[in-house]
Amino acid sequence: MSAETFSNAPVSVAQAQAWDAQRRRARIQLRLRRAGVYVVAVALAVWILLPIWLIANMAFSTPQDVRAFPKSFFPNPISLESISFFLNAQGIIPSTGNSIFVAIVTVVLSTILAVPAGYAIARYVFRGRDAIRLVMLSVRAFPIVVLAVPLAVIFLQLGIFDQPFTLALMHTALTLPTTILVISSVFASVPFEFEEAAQVFGCTPLQAFFQVVLPLALPGIAASAILTFVLSWNEVFAAILLTLSNRTLPAHILYNLDKSSDPFKFASAFVMLVPSLIFIFFIRRYLFNMWGQINK
C-alpha cells in the first residue's frame, strides 16, 4: 500500500457527510440485525422454559390453587403441599426406588460393557469395524416397542418377569449402542500419542490405559453415564410392559394417569423433570460429543 492512499486528499463536505450517513446506516442495520437475532433467541428460550415454569408453578402451589380457575401464573402462596401429597401417595416411594435402582443398574452394566467396546472401536483398525459402527448406529433408534413385547413373554417364561433387574437388562440393551458410540468418541478424542508416550516411558498397555487414557476420558464417560441414567429414568414403554407390581415411576404414573387428580399429575411431572434438568446441565458440554458424532 502506498502512502498516497492515506494522504489528506481534499474531500468535499457533501461527500464526507454522505459517507458519514452511510456508515451510520450500516451501523444501525448491524445493530438491528443483532437485536433481531437476540429477540428470536429469547423467544425460543421462552418457548422452552414457559411450560417448565408453569409446571413448577403448579408443583409449588397448594392443591386448592392447582384446582382453581382461572389459575395464577405464580405460586401464591408457595407451598410444598402438592409435592408432599404426591410423594405420600401410594406406590410413589417404592416406584421411585425402582426407577433409581433400574437406572443405576443400567448405568453400571452399560458402562462396563461399553468401555471396552468403545475403546476397541476408537483405537483399533480391524475387519468389520465399520460394520459394527453401522450396526450400533442403526439399532440405536431401534423401536423399543418391537423388543419389549417378546422380551416380556420371554421373561415370563423364564420366571423373571416383573423384576426391576430384568427391566434394567432391557434398558441396558436399549442404551448400549448409544453408550458405545459416545464412549468411543470420548476415547477417540484422547490422542493416541498419549498412550504411546506412556508406553515408551515404561507402561504396559493396560497401565497406559489406566494411567493416561482413563483419567482423560473419565469426564466424558461420566457424561455418558448420566445420559444413560436419564434415558433409563425416562423410559416408559418397556417399563410398563415388563413390570406389573414393581413399576418404575413413569410406568406407575402413566398406568394410573386416568385415575389421578391434577395436583398429583402436575407434581409428578415436576418430580420426574427435575433430575433431567440437573443432569442435562452437567453434561451440556458433551451433548455434541454424544449426538454430533453420528454424522460421521
Binding site: I48, W233, V236, M272, L287
Partner: peptide
Amino acid sequence: YIYAIPLGISDLVAGILWFA
C-alpha cells in the same frame, strides 16, 4: 443449554406439561 433441556425430558412429562 436452554434449547437442549427437552433432551432430558420424557414424553410422559412433556405430555403432562402441555396437558396442564
